[in-house]
């Protein structure tokens, strides 16, 4: 046979439990806003989501031009462009007058 425990004793038990575990005793379940204070701050972890900026040779050259670091990829690119230009595959000349423009020769 289970015995019915008096509500007052149950309330006293809850109150004691609250004092032991350091929580607020709120028998009427009023919204006290405590959850906004208890929740952990999410900002610090949010800020760390993206990895920190990594520096490239271009960045270092821009910041310290006096170091004269050689950017291999950029050197290769310029070398290739020079080779193309020698073979006449460079960019076309800019038109000096409206008559030179290829636009003028285009069908209307």
């Amino acid at each position: 046979m289970s015995r019915v425990v008096a509500p007052a004793r149950l309330a006293a038990l809850t109150k004691l439990r609250c004092s032991i575990f350091n929580t607020s005793y709120n028998p009427s379940s009023v919204r006290t806003g405590a959850k906004y204070l208890k929740a952990r701050l999410r900002g610090p972890s949010m800020v760390k989501y993206y990895p920190p900026k990594t520096f490239t040779i271009q960045d270092i050259n821009r910041m310290f031009p006096e170091m004269n670091l050689v950017d291999e990829a950029e050197e290769t690119r310029l070398e290739d462009l020079r080779a193309l230009k020698v073979r006449g595959k460079g960019p076309p000349k800019k038109a000096k007058t409206a008559a030179d423009s290829r636009r003028a020769a285009r069908k209307k």
Binding site: V30, R31, T32, G33, A34, Y36, L37, A39, L41, R42, G43, P44, M46, V47
Partner: peptide
């Protein structure tokens, strides 16, 4: 969010507190 979080939490606490 990181910069304003504490202040926003304080206002939330007041705004949601029925007492």
């Amino acid at each position: 969010v990181n910069h304003n979080e504490v202040l926003r939490r304080a206002y939330l606490f007041v705004a949601r507190n029925q007492t």
